[in-house]
Measured scan of single mutants.
Amino acid sequence: MASQGTKRSYEQMETDGERQNATEIRASVGKMIDGIGRFYIQMCTELKLSDYEGRLIQNSLTIERMVLSAFDERRNKYLEEHPSAGKDPKKTGGPIYKRVDRKWMRELVLYDKEEIRRIWRQANNGDDATAGLTHMMIWHSNLNDTTYQRTRALVRTGMDPRMCSLMQGSTLPRRSGAAGAAVKGVGTMVMELIRMIKRGINDRNFWRGENGRKTRSAYERMCNILKGKFQTAAQRAMMDQVRESRNPGNAEIEDLIFLARSALILRGSVAHKSCLPACVYGPAVASGYDFEKEGYSLVGIDPFKLLQNSQVYSLIRPNENPAHKSQLVWMACNSAAFEDLRVLSFIRGTKVSPRGKLSTRGVQIASNENMDAMESSTLELRSRYWAIRTRSGGNTNQQRASAGQISVQPAFSVQRNLPFDKPTIMAAFTGNTEGRTSDMRAEIIRMMEGAKPEEMSFQGRGVFELSDERAANPIVPSFDMSNEGSYFFGDNAEEYDN
């Protein structure tokens, strides 16, 4: 993207840094990872977990959730003011799984939030270390993106479920800051804005008074975040219109849905970061690795190297396929839920299948599930090659597409044709070009129609051997075009429920 120079890199967003050079960025990201790792080690000690239990991804998720809940100030305040039966607002906890007599047992633990905050700050040299908290939120978000298709949420806001490739980060909490905003897809931002506008339509006082002023500035800020994701002048001009509207209503909703559809071809720039579970960072720190000293990046080879040398386990339900569970977590670790499966298959070195073909449910185990038949197995999170994460949407291309997802959002900077089903997408653009945004709409449609099938995206960008740390010898991959490109292809993934 041309304006790259004016933006802070995501590592800076990730670490609240002012302008830093590459070495400083690597050190501050490393410091953040160190903090998460030290916190995780301490929690495993508190909970008396064995090494194996500490490497269980379900335990990692519970521990991450506990610290996120302990620092969720708004919710904590709300819980104190609106006490609900049987919930102690000062405590947080969740299921911890232990191996007892050759069987997995679930144990519900409860801790004072104050105590968890103390352990977290102690692991982070006394700081609140917001960057580390956001990092864990993005890992949870990436896992949700890989596990669930947001059909219901899309339909509720009037969008087409086939636009799911635009929904990265749709389950990120509001408090995820600049680093969170960077990884949100165009569809996620559109959905947040539509929800806001709908509230304004239904509630006369939404934009009024002292609160209304705050609401208005939040609305304009979200519009600017979305505008910054678009790469064409016409899309940005249309966002200006939406932002400046005196009284946002149905016309703005129409414009936003139009823009979301246009992003299936004229893709937005959305950041991709490899955020790993805390149970990967903990053992690495415990083994003596100093992330701050060595430096770390979320968008280069580092996460690949770390996963190459990590042992992570997962509980497996009786009829689940461990290899499929591994694929789910591998995609989440690489922030690749909406990437082209052919690119992923090449990088991973084994075939990556669409969601609907995987015999696996989510990673988390519900409290009512029976533990008797639970097994555990090693997650295979290694890769054959590594590639640089991208934040450009890439230019655009036609490809055989599917009944489910009709476009992709690249996660890796790797040369390819970008699949999208042009006739299906263009069919949504018939007729409606009147109104105050008509010239911009016409211009956007013209650009979409001009998108050429034979153009290559990320020209000359390749993948790298894991021994090639400096990215000196790019390998331009070859793809098996007979395979499906979309992950949520004609899909039956479970729906995400809060």
Rank of each mutant, 00 (worst) to 15 (best):
S269I: 10
G132V: 04
C164N: 13
S245T: 09
E339G: 05
S60M: 11
S482C: 05
P173Q: 15
K214L: 09
K325P: 05
D112G: 09
W386D: 02
G485H: 02
D34V: 13
F479P: 09
S297F: 08
N21K: 15
W104D: 11
E46G: 06
R436W: 07
K7Q: 04
Y10I: 14
Y296V: 03
W104T: 09
T62F: 03
L68K: 11
E115Q: 09
S170F: 12
S367N: 15
I119T: 11
L259F: 04
R74I: 02
S50L: 09
F258G: 11
A2Y: 01
N368I: 13
Y148S: 08
K227F: 13
Q311T: 15
R117D: 03
G35S: 15
V29D: 13
R156D: 02
K293A: 05
I41N: 13
F304Y: 08
I425N: 11
A237G: 15
I119M: 13
Q409P: 00
S245A: 14
N124R: 04
G180Q: 10
Y385V: 13
E192V: 04
A411N: 02
I406T: 13
L154G: 01
K98Y: 03
L108F: 11
R204G: 01
D112R: 12
E115F: 13
S353L: 13
G187Q: 03
R121A: 07
M371S: 11
A22Q: 08
N319V: 15
D372G: 08
F304G: 10
C279R: 03
G35C: 11
G282L: 10
K422V: 10
K351W: 04
T350W: 14
Q231F: 02
N250D: 07
G169W: 08
I96R: 03
I225L: 15
L266K: 15
G37K: 05
I425K: 01
Y78R: 08
A286R: 10
I119V: 15
R26W: 04
Y289L: 14
R361I: 08
L193T: 13
E64Y: 13
L49T: 14
M371A: 15
D145L: 05
L298Q: 08
N21F: 00
R150P: 12
I63S: 05
R38G: 13
M331A: 10
L108R: 06
C164Y: 02
I257G: 10
M13E: 08
L259D: 03
E443V: 13
E320K: 12
G35N: 09
Q459L: 05
D112C: 11
E210D: 14
G54D: 12
R150F: 03
S170T: 09
S413C: 08
V352M: 10
A411T: 13
P354N: 13
K48I: 11
T134Y: 03
G450N: 13
C164P: 07
M448G: 04
P161R: 09
V363W: 00
N417T: 13
S262W: 06
R361P: 02
R243Y: 06
A387E: 02
K184I: 05
L79E: 07
N498S: 09
K31C: 12
A428V: 06
D51A: 12
A237E: 05
R121W: 11
M238E: 08
T396C: 10
S392Q: 03
Q405T: 08
R38L: 14
S314N: 13
R75A: 08
T188S: 15
A332W: 02
M447P: 03
R213Y: 10
L418Q: 09
I138N: 06
K198T: 11
T45I: 05
S141N: 06
F412H: 10
L56M: 13
V190Y: 06
K422S: 11
H272A: 04
Q122Y: 02
S9G: 01
K293P: 09
D480M: 05
I365V: 10
A442C: 09
P322K: 01
G30Y: 03
Q149M: 06
K351G: 02
P318F: 13
A337K: 02
Q149V: 08
S359V: 15
M43T: 14
R355E: 11
I425C: 15
R389F: 02
F479T: 09
T62H: 07
M137W: 03
S9M: 14
S438V: 14
R19W: 04
A366D: 09
F291V: 05
N498Q: 10
S376D: 03
A70G: 15
P474V: 15
A271I: 06
I201H: 01
A472L: 01
S482I: 05
W104P: 04
L154K: 09
L47M: 11
G187C: 11
M167I: 11
V186C: 10
I138A: 11
I36Q: 13
V343T: 11
F464K: 00
R199A: 08
R213A: 04
M331K: 03
S141M: 06
G54S: 14
V476F: 00
E14L: 03
L341I: 12
Y219L: 14
R461C: 04
S392H: 04
M447K: 06
F458S: 06
G37R: 01
C164D: 01
I41T: 14
F420L: 10
N417F: 05
Y496P: 00
Q241M: 08
R199Q: 07
D491G: 10
S383D: 13
G431L: 13
I316M: 15
I253G: 05
R174W: 09
R102Y: 14
V352G: 09
D468Q: 03
K351C: 08
A323N: 13
K103W: 03
L418V: 15
N368M: 13
V183S: 08
E254H: 08
C164S: 13
A427G: 15
I116T: 13
A129H: 05
L266A: 05
P83Q: 15
E24S: 06
R75G: 07
Q415H: 08
K98G: 05
E107N: 13
S217M: 14
F488T: 01
N397Q: 05
E484C: 00
I406L: 09
P423S: 13
R461W: 11
S217E: 00
G268I: 13
N370E: 07
K293S: 14
W207G: 06
G17Q: 14
G356M: 09
N76C: 12
K214R: 14
M66A: 11
N211F: 10
F230Y: 07
D145P: 05
H272I: 03
V285L: 12
M481L: 11
L256A: 14
R382S: 06
G450Y: 15
L418E: 00
P283S: 12
N319A: 08
M189V: 14
P419D: 00
G185W: 02
L68V: 03
N321Y: 11
G180T: 06
E484M: 07
P303Q: 07
V280W: 05
N368D: 01
S345K: 05
L264T: 13
R461Y: 00
G485L: 07
M163H: 02
R19M: 08
M43S: 07
Y296T: 11
G187I: 13
E292M: 12
T130F: 04
S262R: 06
R246D: 02
G435E: 11
I253M: 14
R150W: 11
M238Q: 14
C223W: 12
K113P: 02
L315R: 10
Q122W: 00
V312S: 06
A366R: 02
V155A: 08
A233W: 03
T45E: 04
A2W: 04
P354S: 06
K91I: 02
E64D: 13
P95D: 12
P277M: 13
D240P: 00
K103N: 15
A472F: 13
Q398M: 01
T15G: 01
H324E: 07
M447E: 06
E220C: 04
N142F: 12
Y148W: 05
R391H: 04
S326E: 04
G86Q: 09
L266H: 06
S353Y: 02
I194L: 13
R75N: 09
K87I: 08
I388D: 13
Q409E: 02
I316G: 03
Y40S: 02
S84K: 00
A251W: 07
P95N: 10
N247D: 03
G288W: 04
E18C: 07
A428R: 07
E443D: 13
D16S: 08
Q415Y: 00
C44D: 01
R436Y: 05
A234T: 02
A153N: 04
N144S: 04
E375W: 12
F39N: 14
R436A: 02
